[in-house]
């Protein structure tokens, strides 16, 4: 990851729009923290008490995978990575909205917490706003042919 960013720094004009420069620097950092946090949480849940709430813990693992894919795809250049990042961020947004709504309204009994429960309240609602910034950033860094 560093080679890319270091070469980007040498550009005095800042003309190069790479996905990890400018605001993308912060965005990828936030995604990375969520990727690590969600992965660790899912691993812990699945390894120590999977039988308590298999659905919720599998959902935790799914959310973790989405964050990992989004982080990696956002930090790489190229049109293919852009599309993968877009897919991951859209899935993330749908995930947080659906899981958030289900947990807030209690239509389905959800016995355990995930990153997306109550729209990510346990994480300062960052999971709710993150995909919005992700989409805005992807729109701005769309590769020009």
């Amino acid at each position: 990851m560093s080679e890319q960013s270091l070469s980007g720094d040498r550009d005095p004009e800042g003309e190069r729009v790479t996905r990890t420069s400018g605001p993308g620097r912060l965005l990828v950092a936030v995604y990375a923290v969520f990727a690590v946090a969600a992965t660790a949480r899912a691993l812990y849940q699945i390894l120590t008490k999977f039988d308590d709430a298999p659905t919720a813990y599998l959902l935790s693992a799914f959310a973790a995978a989405v964050y990992v894919v989004a982080t990696v795809a956002l930090s790489r250049s190229g049109a293919a990575s852009w599309r993968i990042a877009l897919t991951a961020v859209v899935v993330e947004m749908v995930g947080v909205l659906v899981v958030g709504t289900i947990t807030v309204t209690d239509v389905v009994d959800f016995p355990a917490d995930t990153v997306w429960s109550d729209y990510g309240r346990g994480y300062g609602f960052v999971p709710l706003v993150l995909p919005v910034f992700g989409l805005l950033w992807l729109r701005r860094t769309k590769a020009r042919p």
Partner: peptide, 17 residues
Amino acid sequence: WALAEKSRWGTSVLVFA
């Protein structure tokens, strides 16, 4: 991660962390 970005966005990573 922050130091490689020579702009305010590099500093913003430090705020977040």
